[in-house]
Each structure stands twice: as C-alpha cells, then as structure tokens.
C-alpha cells in the first residue's frame, strides 16, 4: 500500500531505540505483521536499503514474522483460521465473528552491536 512511509516509520522507531541503547550498529529488526495488514515484504525491503543508508541501521536485516488471521465465533465460541476468503464460522455457520489475530503491525525487537567503551585493542 504505502510501503515508503511505513519503511520510514520503521527506521525512525529503530533509530530511537538503538540510540537509547547506545548502539554502534543495528544488525536485525524483527517485525510482526498480521496477514490482514496489507504490507508487501519485498517492497519494504526495497525501500529499507535506501532509507537506512548512512544511518546506524544501514545493512540491517529485516525479519518478518507473519501472523495468520484468526477469528472467534461469538455463536459457538470456537476459534478458526481465515484461509483465502471471508466466510462464516466453519463449525456452526454463525456470522457473528470477531478478529482475534492477524492485524498486528509492530516492531518486536532489534538486535544491536554496542559501542565498545574503554576497551583497548
């Protein structure tokens, strides 16, 4: 959808946390993206290499964890996966369903290399 602005947001959050942790370099960024968040991994990766250039995030790997869409049926209280298309509850045919997973869109953690302070080589 709008991967460039999303990628810039990822960079800004990663830089903020990396700076707080006194990182010399960020090596990995762990992202959690629900199946229903319309984000294309390849596009984010493409923009990432451009926006992260000349920052301490340059060269960092983006690791995407995808979360499948899960619904809860209010009629029979069972949980089910949404496969390819929107449908009623596969157990009771109920249509009173609620999304319980699949719209995640956050940075879980980053991996950094610390500045070496006061260590002589």
């Amino acid at each position: 959808m709008h991967e460039l602005s999303v990628t810039e947001n990822i960079l800004s959050i990663a830089l903020e946390h990396a700076t707080q942790a006194e990182a010399a370099r960020v090596t990995v960024i762990h992202l959690v993206i629900g199946q229903l968040s319309s984000i294309v991994d390849d596009s984010v990766q493409f923009y990432w290499d451009m926006v992260a250039e000349s920052t301490i995030c340059e060269g960092a790997k983006l690791h995407f964890s995808r979360v499948a869409a899960m619904f809860h049926c209010e009629d029979c209280a069972s949980d089910f996966n949404m496969d390819s298309r929107l449908s009623e509850c596969p157990y009771c045919g109920g249509i009173h369903t609620r999304l319980i997973a699949g719209d995640e869109f956050y940075i879980d953690s980053i991996e950094i290399e610390k500045k070496e302070v006061g260590v002589k080589q």
Binding site: I13, A21, T27, D108, K114
Partner: peptide, 17 residues
C-alpha cells in the same frame, strides 16, 4: 563485538496514532 537484543514492541504507525 557482541550482539544484543533490545525489546521494542512499538506499533509501526505509533507516530501517526
């Protein structure tokens, strides 16, 4: 140089929110 993991858990669109 050692690598450490820093927890973040922040929504990507948190600035917008």
């Amino acid at each position: 140089m050692s690598t450490i993991k820093v927890p973040v858990v922040e929504k990507i669109l948190s600035a917008n929110d």
